[in-house]
Design a protein around this nucleic acid. Structure first.
Lengths: 162, 162
DNA sequence: TACTTCCATACTAGTTTGGTAGGTTTCAAG
DNA sequence: CTTGAAACCTACCAAACTAGTATGGAAGTA
């Protein structure tokens, strides 16, 4: 799972909006408080507006606000809005890939990967993020110290970033 | 999670090698049986050799074979060899990203995403794939009919591929 | 020597990523 | 009705990645 700067910025900006749901917040303010390049964030907010996650108001005192309550927007909504489906195999959805022998089982692996991602990303809302109250099964996944260390792997192309 | 053609081809080729562990299998044979462009697969096999997952033999009767038993190579090994770490946020590992308020909890989300991916991709071996005997917890994830359907989402940029 | 197979390098066309620059429209307050 | 704040739009950019293709060599077998 690769989270781009764009998606990361979007989530932080939306969390900020969730934390100030009482008023519109400008791109400029979002950019400064989250240390995001202003014009880049503007483009991201435009995309989020087009997909219907935020509504915007021009002019003095304007800005952006969430289009629905923060407890009804999940992390998966944001990722899908900017990157498309959570899980894609060679450009296709897991249930559409067609494997011959001896690799048929790979499809089941991809389907379960998607199910696992959904169980996390569709259960965390923006309200959860700002309140710091993540669902129990997610805190459990992150509870093991093992979850916080990088696993070693061999490719010299990538070892710089362990 | 985005699985590229390269990674998909690699997994299918390695499954084929696992299914014929008694002899070296040539790129040509792998390419034909799995319908993979021959020269592209050659480049992929070279990469897998450099990362130590396969060993190769030139000349007549040569080809590729797994560098260790198929039950000691997991899907995560292959993905890491070709794509680097399983989970990357803005180019960094989950435990290295630095969030300010009100987004601190996002880090826990990413850590649990990685833990969930590991629990799947580090438990499925090539031997499991060719035998069709996936670990119980994976078959459970894929057991629900829900896991086999695409969830609707709103971005018009991506709706063509539902 | 001939043939097979891996191996290395280079090339391409298209897309994605992470931005920057400049101008236009909309809105509110004075 | 002007001024300023903000969203909005189009275009551009360099670097990396994706999915290959092409050419030629080097090593191993018969």
């Amino acid at each position: 799972m690769r989270i781009s700067a764009k998606t990361d910025y979007a989530l932080r900006a939306l969390a900020q909006l969730a934390a100030h749901a009482d008023r519109p917040v400008s791109s400029e303010e979002l950019a400064q408080s989250q240390e995001i390049p202003h014009k880049f964030l503007e483009a991201i907010m435009a995309e989020l507006r087009r997909t219907g996650l935020v509504v915007s108001q021009r002019g003095t005192g304007g800005g952006h606000r969430l289009s629905r309550p923060a407890d009804r927007i999940v992390v998966a909504d944001v990722i899908r809005a900017l990157n498309g489906p959570l899980t894609v195999i060679r450009g296709e959805c897991p249930q559409d890939v067609d494997y011959g022998p001896p690799s048929e089982s790979l499809q089941v692996v991809w389907v379960s990967v998607r199910a696992a991602l959904r169980s996390i990303l569709e259960s965390v809302t923006l309200a959860d993020v700002v309140a710091g109250t993540l669902p129990e099964h997610i805190r459990e996944l992150a509870a093991s110290p093992d979850a916080w260390v990088t696993h070693w792997y061999a490719n010299p192309m990538h070892t710089s970033g362990t």
